[in-house]
């Protein structure tokens, strides 16, 4: 091959495209793993926040205040600092502080409180009248949560998952700076430290595409779910 291909012309520094492919896979694995755990931890946390808040089924100012404080503290620490702070915990949990495994604990701990707040506010959107009607029919609190609150708020919860997933894409890219791998890592190492603007361009384009796809998917599911 004498003439350089179009890819070589446009992206002269990128010699190994499989590296970019691997970075995409790493980003998706980090995103998938951390999103799953974030939902598993954040959803009950959000339900708890909601139930414990004023005039709700388990109105309990103390437990609300305590939980709310933890959530607020975790949310107020910038993610990049949270990652560094959590390194001992991360190592204890995963036996690693870098790579996909090392990235997941800080991602989940950073995103779960955020997601829990979003869940709490989407549960607030469910009318108090519907809850009262369920109580009047003799439903237990567990039944009200599972059969009334969560199904009625499901469109809001899916929207919350979408927003959280997009925030996590940003966090994984930040994680790249301290060695989490993935697209953020490529952009930082080759694009920024290595002065290779074509790497920067490709990774940014892929991140934009990922965010777009997540938003479209989320919106499509919300549309299917709402019967209001």
């Amino acid at each position: 091959m004498n003439a350089p291909s179009l890819l070589q012309q446009w992206f002269p520094n990128i010699t190994d495209w499989t590296e970019i492919g691997q970075a995409c896979i790493d980003t998706l694995l980090m995103l998938g793993g951390s999103l799953l755990l974030t939902v598993v931890i954040g959803l009950p946390l959000g339900v708890w926040l909601f139930l414990a808040s004023r005039d709700q089924l388990h109105d309990s100012p103390r437990s609300y205040a305590a939980l709310s404080l933890v959530v607020n503290v975790l949310r107020s620490i910038p993610f990049i600092i949270l990652m560094i702070l959590l390194m001992p915990l991360t190592f204890f949990l995963m036996r690693a502080t870098i790579g996909i495994r090392g990235a997941i604990p800080p991602l989940v701990i950073g995103a779960a409180p955020f997601f829990a707040r979003l869940v709490e506010s989407s549960l607030r959107e469910v009318g108090a009248g519907v809850v009262e009607a369920s109580q009047a029919m003799g439903a237990t609190t567990g039944q009200i949560v599972r059969r009334v609150l969560l199904p009625e708020a499901r469109a809001g919860i899916v929207a919350a998952i979408t927003v959280t997933a997009i925030a996590l894409v940003g966090y994984t890219a930040m994680g790249g700076i301290i060695g989490a791998g993935g697209l953020g890592s490529l952009a930082y190492q080759y694009g920024y430290l290595g002065y290779k603007p074509d790497y920067m361009l490709v990774t940014v384009a892929l991140l934009v595409l990922l965010v777009q796809l997540l938003q479209m998917l989320g919106d499509a599911i919300v549309r299917r779910m709402s019967h209001r």
């Binding site: 009318g127 009248g129 519907v130 009262e132 009607a133 109580q135 009047a136 029919m137 003799g138 439903a139 237990t140 009334v148 199904p151 009625e152 499901r154 779910m225 019967h227 209001r228």
Partner: peptide, 19 residues
Amino acid sequence: RDLRAGIGMIFQHFNLLSS
């Protein structure tokens, strides 16, 4: 809960499950 199950109730704004 048993008592409440034996007493029906309807509301001004119906309070049906929209989902």
